Amino acid sequence: METLIVYKSVFHGNTKKIAIAMAEVLNAKFLDVENVDKKIIGDYDLIGFGSGIYYDKPQKKLMEYIEGLNNVKNKKAFVFSTSRQNRSDYNDWFKENLSDKGFEIIGEFHCKGHTIFKGNPNEEDLENAKEVARNIINTYNQILDMPEDSTNI
Rank of each mutant, 00 (worst) to 15 (best):
K16V: 06
L26R: 03
E24H: 13
Y55A: 11
Q85D: 10
Y90A: 02
N71D: 14
K38Y: 00
V33Y: 01
R87K: 15
N128S: 14
K57Y: 14
F103R: 03
E64H: 05
Y54R: 14
K8S: 13
Y65L: 02
V36Y: 08
D149G: 06
V72F: 10
N71A: 09
G113M: 09
N70T: 11
E67S: 15
Y90H: 14
I116E: 10
N152P: 00
V79G: 09
N97G: 08
V10A: 06
E108N: 13
K29V: 13
N138L: 09
I40Q: 09
N27C: 04
K16G: 07
N91Q: 00
R84C: 07
Y54K: 12
M63Q: 14
A23T: 10
I143F: 04
K73H: 07
D92Y: 01
V132Y: 03
K76F: 15
E34K: 14
I105P: 05
D37P: 06
N128T: 04
F109P: 03
N91W: 00
D43T: 09
S51G: 10
K73F: 06
N14H: 04
N27S: 13
G102H: 05
G50N: 05
L62D: 03
K17E: 15
W93H: 12
E64A: 12
S9D: 05
A77E: 04
N120S: 14
E24C: 03
V25T: 15
T15K: 08
I105V: 11
S99F: 00
E96C: 00
N122V: 07
S51N: 09
L46Y: 02
G50Y: 04
L126A: 10
V10E: 06
D37T: 09
E67W: 05
V6L: 08
S81L: 09
F11G: 10
R84P: 01
I5T: 05
K112T: 12
P58F: 06
K38T: 09
S51E: 07
V33N: 01
A19G: 00
L31I: 05
F80N: 05
E104P: 02
D32S: 08
V33G: 02
K73I: 10
N152D: 12
Y65G: 01
F94Q: 04
I106G: 01
D149V: 03
T115D: 11
K16H: 12
K61A: 13
E148H: 13
I153R: 10
E34A: 07
D37V: 02
S88D: 14
K130T: 02
R134N: 15
L4W: 01
V132T: 15
F11S: 13
K16P: 05
F49L: 12
K8C: 11
Q59V: 11
D43I: 03
G107K: 02
I41Q: 02
D89P: 00
K60H: 09
K8A: 14
K38R: 14
Y140N: 11
K118E: 11
N70L: 11
I5F: 08
E67L: 15
G68M: 03
F11A: 13
I143W: 01
D56N: 14
N71Y: 05
G107E: 02
P121Q: 10
L69V: 09
R84L: 11
F80V: 08
I153D: 10
E67G: 03
Y44P: 07
L69Q: 08
I106L: 04
N152T: 14
